[in-house]
């Protein structure tokens, strides 16, 4: 092989090696805010005792603490029935029939659906709703004129997540 051609080849390889060697990493920055993606409801894995569930529900609906006698009676009644979810629904319904129950107005709910939904999630689930949850309730309330605050509260109070903390 001609020595001149050989040297040219060596030089070409050396140049190629230089350009294909280590380069400084480019860190992409998409200007997106860091968010926790863990669903807060995933942290709820302990079910409330009857005492806890009733005390919290009563306070949520009546804005005052339940009396010890009322709490004792309600605990016994829950104990006396096998289907706890069912008897809980009857108790909620019973509370809703009380003149002392404190609920936001239906007009507030319809005028401020997002705020109402966020408040309701915080009241019953002690967490912020996801966009999907807000969207569902916003659309459901708008599409169903029969839906009242009472019905929304009843659905939350008798849901599975409400039984856990």
């Amino acid at each position: 092989m001609n020595m001149r051609i050989f040297n040219s080849g060596i030089i070409l390889i050396a140049v190629a090696a230089i350009f294909s060697s280590c380069r400084k990493d480019v860190i992409a920055d998409f200007k997106v805010n860091q968010e926790t993606v863990l669903d807060p409801s995933l942290e709820k894995d302990r079910d409330k005792t009857n005492k806890q569930a009733i005390s919290i529900l009563y306070t949520s609906l009546f804005q005052k603490a339940i009396s010890s006698n009322n709490l004792f009676q309600t605990e016994n009644v829950i104990e006396s029935f096998g289907d706890k979810a069912l008897i809980n629904e009857v108790i909620v319904s019973n509370y809703m029939n009380s003149p002392d129950v404190v609920l936001p107005s239906d007009s507030f709910m319809r005028a401020n659906p997002d705020q109402f939904i966020k408040d309701t999630y915080k009241l019953f689930y002690v967490r912020i709703p996801s966009e999907l949850e807000i969207s569902f309730f916003r659309e459901y309330i708008a599409a169903n004129p029969n839906v009242t605050v009472e019905l929304v509260y009843t659905a939350f109070a008798s849901s599975d997540e409400y039984q856990f903390y």
Partner: peptide, 14 residues
């Protein structure tokens, strides 16, 4: 409506 809303809530729960 109570059932539908509760079903949504229960389906969202783990």
């Amino acid at each position: 409506p109570i059932r539908k809303m509760r079903a949504f809530l229960n389906n969202s729960f783990r």
